[in-house]
Design a binder for these strands. Structure first.
Lengths: 177, 177
DNA sequence: GCAAATTAATGATTTATTCAAG
DNA sequence: CTTGAATAAATCATTAATTTGC
């Protein structure tokens, strides 16, 4: 490839010289989007091969291109939605960033609901379930923090401070443990 | 009048008295998912109460809703995985992994079925992966139709017409081959 | 009008999580 | 507790849009 990517080299994907990356034709994109909208989000290997065979009628294409396309499309769909929710969040000044929640490592899982079978039914009246162990920092943070929520915005908090300056007004005074 | 701003309200469950069922707000869902991914799979009764108190700031909610949410979420997680495994076996126990590709450096082709390992890397090179039969209805459907087709937005099309009459009219022949 | 320069999209890789089998 | 299989998120890299000055 000559230094300055010339027009010739960009011509479609038949890349005589081996274009660096797949460049889908409008037909291919249309078909892929149709499939995606139709509900196909993560095609199997078999499906990928079939799609590839079909789309190759409209231009050079490989299985991996199809694979990547779906991966990226799905991921960016999610990303879009997440951004909207984030915006919504910030607009309403809510809680710590989604990232900090999402990435929290935190193992936890000590709950035992074995005796909670009929919990739902009795929910409003009595709670015979007593197992606890609320040292989950995430939980703590989420349950406690309310207004501030500055925390980290990007790096997953390995160890967050458990309590914010103010212990959250009257959340649920009956803290076992 | 913020058109977009109404989303939250619409989803929220401020519902006119006696709403049939809980309808979580985006904030609630995000917080729940954050907790879930943070490691909380089966909250204890106490945790549920705390979560409920916390989430009630963003919309009407009851303890049982939280309880059910976690139950369902966990169950559907497993279900999803199980389905994949099932599909895998039904399809012939061979290829469902087009993503485990780059994890397998793929040393050599033993000469038989080992060729499916590194799909992405070898994608263009060797496709000796069994030519599985295309009986996949979804695929078929998807590959055929291309015109706007909205299908259902939720349920993946089980069985639709298999072949279109025309193989995609050249829409934009701007792509040289 | 036209390219160089800049920005937005999107294809391709890498890295982290997740579930569950051993 | 460790590890395999699959995925999703984050990131890198290149192409396409667009802006800009001439």
């Amino acid at each position: 490839m000559s230094a300055t990517g010339t027009v010739v080299e960009r011509l479609s994907n038949s890349g005589s010289g081996g274009g660096s990356r797949w460049c889908p034709t409008p037909e291919q994109v249309m078909l892929l989007e149709g499939m995606y909208r139709g509900g196909l989000k993560t095609p199997t290997a078999t499906q990928i091969q079939q799609i590839t065979a079909r789309l190759s009628l409209y231009g050079k294409i490989q299985g991996k291109n199809v694979f990547y396309w779906f991966q990226n499309h799905k991921a960016r769909d999610r990303q879009k939605i997440r951004k909207k929710l984030m915006a919504m969040y910030q607009h309403q000044r809510l809680l710590p960033s989604y990232n900090s929640l999402y990435y929290h490592p935190l193992p936890l899982q000590g709950g035992d609901m074995s005796s909670c079978k009929n919990m739902v039914n009795e929910w409003n009246v009595d709670q015979t379930c007593k197992k606890v162990m609320c040292d989950c920092s995430l939980m703590t943070v989420m349950l406690m923090d309310q207004g501030t929520s500055q925390y980290c915005t990007r790096v997953p908090p390995k160890t967050l401070q458990l309590f914010p300056t103010a212990p959250a007004p009257t959340l649920n005074p009956s803290q076992p443990q």
